[in-house]
């Protein structure tokens, strides 16, 4: 499964976003604040989700913040780390 599709599904499952379908999450949509509306607790949960489902570590929020902006940025981050 393509990283972006898997990310969207995993996001919905792990963050319990019952009212959202993968199709409703835009690749470029802001995950935090006004877009999908996630918050700081979701951010650290996402770090664990990325580790668990993709085997990629986000060492700290300096690294994490830009990566967690959107599905696109997160997929790119994961791909880069997996290829390294």
């Amino acid at each position: 499964m393509e990283i972006k599709e898997k990310l969207k599904q995993v996001l919905i499952d792990e963050l319990n976003l019952e009212d959202v379908t993968p199709g409703e999450i835009g690749d470029d949509e802001a995950l935090f604040g006004d877009g999908l509306g996630l918050d700081s607790l979701d951010a650290v949960e996402l770090v664990v989700v990325v580790q668990k489902h993709f085997g990629v570590e986000i060492k700290d929020m300096e690294e994490g913040r830009p990566a967690l902006q959107s599905i696109n940025s997160l997929a790119a981050f994961i791909e880069a780390k997996q290829q390294a």
Partner: peptide, 14 residues
């Protein structure tokens, strides 16, 4: 569960 299933680094903050 989160710790026992996937290790200490996958502990769920939520």
């Amino acid at each position: 569960d989160s710790v026992l299933d996937d290790g200490d680094i996958c502990a769920s903050p939520t």
